[in-house]
């Protein structure tokens, strides 16, 4: 196959053939584009439409246009602001843990040591565990105040047990989500480190740079972009953490772990307040879009067509 290619004269295909082909090419892209347009536009348009209506699924007949009343109601609801605050705490702390530790671990796993391949496979495994499983494993078998492993260990040391989900519910969620996502940042940052120019490292080492200096002035600048990408992708996921809260705390105790996603879920599928939930949903869309703009810029810079 390759030899037949090599002997063939290199010439562009005739112009007629190319223009002939450009029409089916567009047709091949069309189904994907049309479906994604529908997926983007229809639900969003419905959300905007509902957001301006009083509409409760339990009393569907009592439905009317109410202008900005839903937004006024949602925006003056202290619960919304609490949930936005909790969302921000969740996003920022998990980002700090996963990126901080992820960078260190990426450097560690970039060193050659016996069994590195297997160690790396073990380390990234949590990312492939479905969220409901990881949340319940942590909640029951590790963090349970009586029979959980942590409680057994600390009690064994005579320190007493921590009731994680009663006393530090948000911290417990942060730990679970960080455990799930640390492998993600590790994997991506490790990939980025491995693309580092070895000559440059060697040159710096020859010049007598210490390991710390190498990290600070060669590795870290090289990782900048990858860290930014990890941060943005994670932010988009962390803005709407749901399953981990759903199966562990149910947003409680009180509102201690009610993030924006869970708040909207409560409005939508427990109170059946379609108007309010839609207005809240639009707020989530706006928040996510702010992050998305930065992410798309970063992706666009790297895309060559």
């Amino acid at each position: 196959m390759t030899s037949s290619v090599a002997t063939r004269p290199q010439q562009p295909p005739p112009a007629r053939a190319r223009s002939h082909r450009s029409i089916p090419a567009r047709l091949l892209v069309a189904p994907s584009v049309i479906l994604l347009v529908l997926w983007m536009v229809v639900p969003l348009a419905m959300a905007i439409w509902f957001a301006f209506q009083r509409y409760n699924l339990l009393i569907p007949d009592n439905r009317e246009f109410v202008g900005f009343a839903n937004f006024a109601y949602i925006l003056t609801d202290p619960t919304l602001w609490i949930s936005i605050g909790i969302t921000l705490v969740l996003v920022v702390s998990v980002l700090a843990i996963t990126i901080g530790l992820g960078t260190v671990l990426a450097v560690l796993f970039n060193q050659e040591f016996p069994g590195r391949g297997i160690a790396r496979v073990l380390a990234i495994s949590p990312f492939f565990v479905m969220p409901t499983v990881s949340a319940l494993i942590w909640k029951n078998m590790l963090m349970h105040p009586v029979n959980g492993l942590f409680a057994q260990i600390t009690r064994g040391l005579g320190l007493g047990a921590i009731d994680w989900f009663a006393d530090f519910p948000l911290l417990a969620i942060i730990i679970i989500v960080a455990w799930q996502w640390l492998p993600f940042s590790l994997l991506i940052l490790l990939t980025a480190i491995q693309s580092l120019d070895t000559d440059q490292m060697e040159a710096a080492r020859m010049d007598g740079a210490s390991a710390m200096q190498l990290f600070r002035f060669v590795v870290l600048p090289h990782l900048n972009r990858a860290i930014a990408v990890v941060a943005m992708i994670e932010t988009i996921f962390f803005l709407t953490i749901f399953a981990e809260i759903f199966v562990t705390t149910g947003g409680g105790p009180g509102l201690a772990t009610t993030n924006l996603a869970y708040y909207i879920y409560l409005k939508a599928l427990l109170e059946f307040d379609v108007g309010g939930a839609s207005a809240g949903g639009l707020i989530a869309v706006v928040l996510a879009n702010i992050v998305a703009i930065f992410l798309m810029r970063s992706v666009a810079r790297n895309l060559d067509t």
Binding site: P43, M46, A47, L239, L260, A268, V274, A292
Partner: peptide, 25 residues
């Protein structure tokens, strides 16, 4: 290029933002 980027941008729509419309649909 813009089609590809636009496709990726549909990933940025948070699921919870369209929970109600999708549920009703």
């Amino acid at each position: 290029k813009s089609t590809l980027l636009w496709m990726l941008s549909t990933k940025m729509l948070p699921a919870v933002g369209v929970l109600v419309p999708i549920y009703i649909l």
